[in-house]
Design a protein around this nucleic acid. Sequence first.
DNA 1: ATGGCGGCTCGCAGCCGA
Length: 256
Amino acid sequence: MKIATWNVNSLKVRLPHLLGWLEAYSPDVMCLQETKLPDERFPVMVMKEAGYEAVWSGQNTYNGVAILSRNALSNVSMGIPGFADEQKRVLAATVGTIRIVCIYVPNGQDPGSDKFSYKLAWLEALTAYVRAELALYPKLVLLGDFNIAPEDRDVHDPAALTGQILVSPPERDAFKKLIQLGFNDSFRIFTQEPGQYSWWDYRMNAFRRNMGLRIDHILVSREVKSMASGCMIDRKARAQQQPSDHAPVMLYLASD
DNA sequence: ATGGCGGCTCGCAGCCGA
């Protein structure tokens, strides 16, 4: 079984990229972030023709998440229960025996800003929600755009970015609290090297110079970790024409 | 890395992302 995530930065613009990637890699489950589409414009028929059932939670201009699956999706849940939020950032569903929680964590703009406070409050609410989900569904995969680079080896220039957004200690502490619920960062089960990124700024030729950050993650619960056989970041997708600034990340499970 | 690019909007300049 293959479970992937990709911040597409506009599903409208990136639909051809997505369809090509689904064709090339045939993930069983694909989680999307930043669809930037209101629900009535989600391309459900195109997904069906590509062989995927879909659930989605979107809005105009910003945010928006979706889960595509070759097999049936059930027990669909939108948002963080009990946490009022206009922004469409969370979507959960069950596929077979696996619970999928697809997230788009707020960017946070700058430490000290209102958006940063929102990011931390959002992460605290998410952590409580995921703790409860894990109790219900021991086989849980929490994946998406976390907008946090967990360690210095996930950052091209840790010294220059110390304390800044995506790497600041409060954000990394929030990430650790999620991990401590009983997760593993699946990419780091298999790969220890630095310089492995999932996002590169459109500016400054950042991709060509590999000035990136690893901020898109697939966290696996203990019961899923025992099935995991690999995790890859497809940086080739970032080298395409008119790419998303994020690369897809995919988890391989030996069984389900 | 004070910007740079790219996507968005009842656009024509400004906001936001990361």
